[in-house]
Design a protein around this nucleic acid. Structure first.
Length: 464
RNA sequence: GUCCCCAUCGUCUAGAGGCCUAGGACACCUCCCUUUCACGGAGGCGACCGGGGUUCGAAUCCCCGUGGGGACGCCA
């Protein structure tokens, strides 16, 4: 049987890191088995779903390069089909009308909590032999409930967590259609997973408790039951749960922050899944290696430090021209123009090994394209007055030097020799004058790239 | 409260009864390289939640405890 997996986000917000990993794993599983990956938008919560969120999810997926074979399917467009099936369940006795009001149910729930039992619907409108029902209240739009089996065990072999069994006594008759007739999540998932022929449902841990209900509905419908794989959640950097209020950010934020999609993907792949000691691998490799057997059942804490390390790795590997285009954009966003300045490719080559993010990289090379503001502490430390005469002499010598790194290096070395100094005594003042700070790659390489005119100009400012 | 799940270095993880005096990676520390800072290289620090079993032998299997998490919506 062909593997068919799906990613089924609800468009109530952006694609965050947890959703991205779920999508990645579902995608990789389908790719590994040459199957299909399906994207389905679960937008039945009309009040909270927005077209902006749909777009944000699509953007996130495409930035990461997670492509799908079918869809996106929108559940709101499948209303007719859901209603048809609900009608069928009603006729077949798998579902029934319930006239309990929300207030009534809230009160029930509260009482049950107080009594220390699991809150659940008590089945007051559930049709049973010889049962006498209360009078049907007027003006109440009934909801439709699934008639869950009362006894027995629901069990499945979770591909991540192993065998799980839950007693039907723990389950109540869940609502499958609201008062206004729109079907609810648990029902739509069941119908869609069934009709879309999903073979492996790979989703978040928070759905474990929905699984037995879904299996019961699948059984009532005579549907094939897919395999389930429940992924543990991703905790924030601080070990706390990610939520809208705390730490959950859009994957697109990582784009803005200067992370490469390859790095995010590679990092996410290793969060909760492993292949021996392998740390760095591309998506082609990942799709070959990926399996559900090596997924950790416990929650994983997000670690930005490690992400940074992986990102730095991919920056070193990245195509130089692509890097230049990206960095140029980031500089432009800060109103720094690179045309007319030193060639970006050269500058980036000099700096790419030192950056954790593209933003770091962009920031570190800003001084090539705009006047640096000299760091006062660095000036104080590396530019003592007694060095100025030496700098002046060097300035004169440099103005008649061929502008190659070797020639520049030669001038510095001669100066060092003539004045019986250590190399840094001359290199550091130059670094501060030219870059504005005390850290940079080889100063001769920097000066060469910056250009003769600009370098001498920056030096003379300090010699005035 | 009830049900379900989880538990190896600070973090991500390897580990499917002997290969484990527990391996790798990030971070941290030391040294080397060096023109500063990085990069890179070489070392180092650092963990099987506790208690009972099972077994010749347990990080690995079982039970209990403890701790953490999730679910209990006319949300998904």
């Amino acid at each position: 049987m062909t593997v068919r997996t799906r990613f089924a986000p609800s468009p109530t917000g952006f694609l965050h890191i947890g959703g991205a990993r779920t999508a990645l794993f579902s995608w990789a599983y389908a790719r590994k088995f040459k199957g299909q990956f399906i994207l389905r938008i679960e937008d039945t919560d009309v009040a909270r779903s927005t077209p902006e969120a749909v777009q944000a999810i699509l953007d996130g997926m495409s930035w990461l390069g997670l492509d799908w074979n079918e869809g996106p399917f929108y559940q709101m467009q499948r209303m007719d089909r859901y209603k048809e099936i609900i009608q069928k369940m009603l006729t077949e006795g798998h579902a029934y009308l319930c006239y309990s009001s929300k207030e009534e149910l809230d009160a029930l729930r509260e009482r049950q909590m107080q009594d220390g039992i699991k809150p659940r619907y008590d089945g007051r409108w559930r049709p049973e032999d010889g049962k006498v029902f209360p009078e049907v209240p007027v003006g109440v739009q009934p909801v439709i409930r699934f008639k869950n089996p009362k006894a027995g065990l629901v069990e499945w072999d979770d591909l991540v967590k192993g065998h799980i069994a839950i007693s039907n006594e723990e389950l109540d008759d869940l609502i499958i259609a609201r008062g206004d007739g729109t079907p609810t999540y648990n029902f739509c998932v069941v119908v869609d997973d069934w009709e879309m022929g999903i073979t492996q449902v790979i989703r978040g841990d928070d759905h474990v408790n929905n699984t037995p209900r879904q299996i019961n509905m699948l059984k009532a419908l005579g549907a094939t039951i897919p395999q389930y794989a429940h992924l543990s959640m991703i905790l924030g950097d601080d070990g706390q749960k990610l939520s809208k209020r705390h730490g959950a950010v859009s994957v697109m934020q990582y784009n803005e922050d200067g992370y490469l999609p390859e790095a995010i993907l590679n990092y996410l792949a290793r969060l909760g899944w492993s292949h021996g000691d392998d740390e760095i691998f591309n998506m082609k490799q990942f799709c070959e290696w990926f399996d559900l057997d090596h997924i950790t059942p416990s929650a994983a804490q997000f670690n930005t430090e490690k992400l940074n390390w992986i990102n730095a790795h991919y920056i070193k590997q990245a195509d130089l021209n692509a890097l230049a285009i990206d960095i140029n954009k980031r500089l432009m966003a800060k109103a720094i123009k690179t045309d007319g300045g030193p060639a970006l490719n050269g500058v980036i080559s000099l700096y790419r090994d030192r950056a954790n993010t593209l933003n770091d990289l962009a920031t570190s090379i800003e001084y090539f394209y705009s006047q640096p503001i000299a760091d006062a502490a660095a000036v104080e430390k590396h530019l003592p007055n007694e060095i100025l005469p030496i700098i002046k002499t060097m300035l004169a010598e440099l103005s008649s030097t061929d502008w190659t790194a070797e020639a520049i290096h030669g001038v510095i070395e001669q100066t060092v020799l003539k004045n019986a100094l250590k190399f840094p005594k001359v290199a550091m003042p130059l670094r501060v004058m030219v870059t504005g700070g005390a850290q940079s790659p080889s100063i001769d390489a920097v000066m060469q790239l910056l250009g003769k005119e600009e370098t001498l100009k920056r030096m003379s400012v300090f010699c005035a």
